[in-house]
Design a protein around this nucleic acid. Structure first.
Lengths: 134, 134
DNA sequence: TAATAGTATAGTAAATTTGTAGACTTGCTT
DNA sequence: AAGCAAGTCTACAAATTTACTATACTATTA
C-alpha cells in the first residue's frame, strides 16, 4: 500500500501539473487546496525537489513549480522517490535490490513469481504519467 | 512490500506442500527447517488455520497439514490472509475496499490508474498457486 | 493420567509513519 | 541596505505497525 506521504506527493504534483504556464505555487496554497498538513508537505516537496522532479523559487512571488513535462514523469518514479521499492520483496526489486539470505534466487520459485508480479505492475505504473492523473 | 510474517507464511506453506501424503508436521520442525521464530510461527499458522488454509491435529503424532490441494491455493490468497490488501490504496482494493475521503472516485484519475495496476498484479498472483512456489 | 502438541491472549521492543517546531538561508523589493 | 517573503534544514515526538515473546490453557492420545 502507498503511504500517506506518497498519496500527498501525487496530489501535490497533480496540482502543480494543473497550473497554467507552470507558474510558482506557494506551499501554503497547495496545503490548503489539497488538505495536506503544511509542515509535512514541506518535507515532501523538498524530497521531490532533491529528486529533481520540481524546482523552487525563494522570496516574494516564489513557490514550487514542475521542472519536467508532466507527460514525462511516471507514477512509478514518484512512488519510488517517496516510498521506495514497488516490488513485493527486495530480492525482486529493480532499483532497491537486496539479496535474500536463506534462499537461492536461482532456484527459488517464489522469486520467479514475484518477478512476474513486479513486471506486471510496472507495466502499468511506468507507463502512466503525471499527466494521466490530473 | 511483503511483511516478514507473509514471507514466513509462504515458506511454511511451501514446506507443508512438499510433504508426502500430507502428513502432519510439527510447528517445531517447520520453525527449524525454515528458520522461523517458533512463537511467531505459531501465530502465523493459527491465522492460516482460522482462514481454513490448513488444519491441525493435537496430541502425539499431531501437527499441521494442508486442507486444500496446493494447486488450488493462490499466492494472492495467502498474502491477503496475512498482510491484507494487495492493492496500492484501499479505494482500489477488491477485498478490503474503503472509500477515500477528499476524492471522488468517479472522477479521480489516480483511482483509474491504480485499478489498472491492481488488475495487472492480480493477474499474476491470483493465477500462481502454492504448488508453483515449492 | 502423563506427555504431547496446538490454542489463545496479551504484552513488549524496535522500527516506521505521520506530523510538528523552530531556527536558518536565500532572494526580491523598496 | 533593510526588511520581509518564502523555501531549507535538522531534530524531535506521537501514533501506529511489525516482529517477536510469555504464559496459561485446551485437546488428544498412548
Amino acid at each position: 500500500m502507498l503511504s500517506k506521504k506518497a498519496q500527498y506527493a501525487l496530489k501535490a504534483l497533480g496540482y502543480l501539473a494543473e497550473q497554467k504556464n507552470n507558474t510558482p505555487v506557494l506551499i501554503t496554497t497547495i496545503a490548503k487546496e489539497k488538505h495536506i498538513p503544511l509542515k509535512f508537505l514541506e518535507n515532501i516537496l523538498l524530497q521531490l525537489n532533491k529528486a529533481e522532479i520540481l524546482c523552487s523559487k525563494k522570496g516574494k512571488g516564489g513557490g514550487y513549480f514542475l521542472v519536467q513535462d508532466p507527460k514525462t514523469i511516471s507514477v512509478a518514479k514518484i512512488i519510488r522517490i517517496i516510498d521506495g521499492p514497488i516490488a513485493l520483496l527486495p530480492c525482486v526489486s529493480l532499483y532497491f535490490y537486496e539479496r535474500c539470505q536463506d534462499c537461492n534466487e536461482k532456484v527459488c520459485r517464489l522469486n520467479k513469481v514475484l518477478i512476474e508480479a513486479r513486471d506486471a505492475i510496472l507495466g502499468v505504473l511506468e507507463n502512466k504519467m503525471l499527466q494521466d492523473i490530473v
